[in-house]
Design a binder for these strands. Structure first.
Lengths: 142, 142
DNA sequence: ATATAATAGTTTTGTACCAAACTATTATAT
DNA sequence: ATATAATAGTTTGGTACAAAACTATTATAT
C-alpha cells in the first residue's frame, strides 16, 4: 500500500486491522479461543505488573475506562482474573490474574514476538527507531 | 505517547481514534451533522472520481465491501448519493453524487487539510517522506 | 446447452472501541 | 458537620469496521 498524506489515516486503519486478524488466527492456533486479541493485550499487561486496579490498566493501555470495564468482565467470566473491591477505599477494584492466566502467558508472549518480527521485517534497527520516533512525534500533536 | 516495539499497535489505534474524534468535531462545527467521518471519506473519494461502482470504492478505500455497502446506504438515505443498477450488467451498482454532496465538498476538503496540518505539525518534509515510506514498507509485510 | 465458476453486492453476526451520563464512595472546603 | 468536588468504575448507546454465508447475475468450459 502506497502511503501518502492523503491516505495516512486509512493506512493506519488497515495495518491495525491486519494485525488484529493475525493475532486472532495465531491465538486460535494455540487454542486460546475464549479470548480475543484485545483481551490478550490486557492479560499480557497484567502479568508484568501483578495486581493492579482498573484505572492502572486504563492508563497503561490508552483505552477508555468503559472499554476496560468490558474487557475485565469478559476476562473474569472466562476465569483469567479475579476482581476484588478494596476494603480501605471501596471505589477501587483490584484485578488479580489467575493460574489460567499464567498458563497462557508464554503463548501470548510468543505470538506478540512473532507479530513484531513479521511487521518489522526488512527494516533495519535504525529504521525502526526512526519509525517509532516519528510516530511518537505525531502522537504528541493530538 | 512514547512509542516502541511493544506498543506500536496500540499507538496506531490511539492515533486513529484521536483523528476520528477530531474529524467528527470539525464536521459538526461545519454543520455536517448527518454523516460521520467515514462517510465523509467515501464522499470525498466520489467527488474525485465521478460515477463509480461499489467495488471501485472498496478498492480505493481498502475497506471490506460489506463495510462499503453500509456506508453507501447511509449516504443514500441522507441524500448524498443515488444508487443505480447497471442495465447492461445487472450485478453492478453505480453511485452518483448529488448536489448536496457537491455542496459539502469544500468543507470536507478543508477539514481534511486542517487535520493533516495538525497531525504532521513539527515534521519536516523529509521526515514526512520518511514516515510515509516506512509505513508503506510495514504495510507490505501484512 | 447447461452445469460450474466467477463476480457484485447484501445480510448477519461479531469485535473493538469511545463518549456521556450514571452510581458509589471518599476527599475538601467552609 | 455537611454541601460540594473529585475519583473509580459501570451502563447505555453509538461508530467503524470485518468475515462468512448468502443472492443475483453473468461468464466459461465442455
Amino acid at each position: 500500500m502506497k502511503v501518502h498524506r492523503g491516505n495516512f489515516l486509512y493506512a493506519l486503519n488497515w495495518i491495525r486491522q491486519r494485525l488484529f486478524a493475525y493475532l486472532e488466527s495465531e491465538m486460535s492456533k494455540e487454542n486460546i479461543g475464549d479470548i480475543t486479541p484485545s483481551y490478550g493485550e490486557v492479560l499480557y499487561m497484567l502479568q508484568r505488573k501483578g495486581t493492579v486496579n482498573l484505572s492502572d490498566i486504563t492508563k497503561m493501555s490508552h483505552k477508555d475506562k468503559s472499554t476496560i470495564t468490558g474487557v475485565i468482565n469478559q476476562l473474569e467470566k472466562n476465569g483469567y482474573i479475579i476482581k476484588k473491591r478494596d476494603n480501605q477505599d471501596r471505589r477501587f477494584v483490584y484485578i488479580e490474574p489467575t493460574e489460567k492466566s499464567k498458563k497462557v502467558q508464554p503463548a501470548l508472549r510468543n505470538i506478540s514476538e512473532k507479530m513484531n518480527s513479521r511487521l518489522f521485517k526488512g527494516l533495519s534497527e535504525e529504521e525502526k527507531e526512526t519509525l517509532f520516533k516519528l510516530v511518537s512525534k505525531i502522537s504528541e500533536n493530538l
